[in-house]
């Protein structure tokens, strides 16, 4: 009855999504352009995880324990309801980041870790911005601004206008800067979400 040292029959020889380099599992990455912020690189990674309670805590702990501050975080379901996707943007040097990737891969609930730092991606953030308006001129100005940035006006009342902006982080930044000449009442931004272009899986 003792199967303390028993073999497990249907463990896949190679877990799906695991990439190898010299026979060593490694996080996946590709070549392209780097985004720099000061001396450190901004890394964008996708983490595919089991859709279970506690997983986000396990993942974020890997960063927190090593003193990393997350720039942005987005969690959502995927095309497969048993899998969630965590998209994280974090600043750090390559070596430290490699460590993080390796430690993430060790988590049982992590299925795949993809480093998009150098990937050809479509990446989007969404922001909702509520601006105070007390006259028609301001309202018109904001409307113009919205058109310029292809933002949408999603709510209007006598004293406020709400804009929805979708785009890369710098576009959302730009809209925010422009709107600062008015009175921004409230602002909320999602984390960055990304998908690779073409047939390549993210």
């Amino acid at each position: 009855m003792s199967n303390q040292n028993g073999t497990i029959s249907n463990v896949p020889a190679q877990a799906p999504g695991m990439e190898m380099q010299n026979g060593v599992p490694t996080i996946v990455s590709a070549a392209g352009v780097n985004v720099m912020s000061g001396n450190e690189k901004l890394h964008t990674i996708s983490i595919l995880v089991e859709n279970r309670p506690g997983v986000l805590a396990r993942v974020s702990h890997v960063f927190a324990r090593r003193g990393f501050n997350l720039e942005s975080l987005a969690v959502s379901r995927t095309e497969d309801h048993t899998v969630s996707r965590i998209t994280i943007v974090v600043a750090g040097d390559d070596e430290a980041f490699k460590q993080i990737g390796n430690q993430l891969l060790k988590l049982i609930d992590v299925i795949k870790v993809i480093d998009h730092t150098n990937d050809n991606l479509v990446g989007r953030e969404l922001a909702l911005i509520k601006v105070h308006v007390d006259n028609a001129a301001t309202r018109a100005e904001i409307q113009q601004l919205a058109e310029l940035f292809r933002a949408k006006i999603v709510a209007v009342d006598p004293t406020t206008v709400m804009l929805e902006v979708t785009g890369k982080a710098d576009k959302v930044d730009a809209v925010t800067t422009m709107l600062q000449q008015h009175e921004i009442l409230e602002l909320v931004r999602t984390g960055l979400v990304v998908l690779a272009r073409g047939e390549k899986q993210t």
């Binding site: 029959s9 463990v11 190898m20």
Partner: peptide
Amino acid sequence: PDSVYLRGYQPEAPAADEQ
């Protein structure tokens, strides 16, 4: 159960020949 299925867990694999 006779077996486990943990798709995020690959504990070991044969060492690569070239290594």
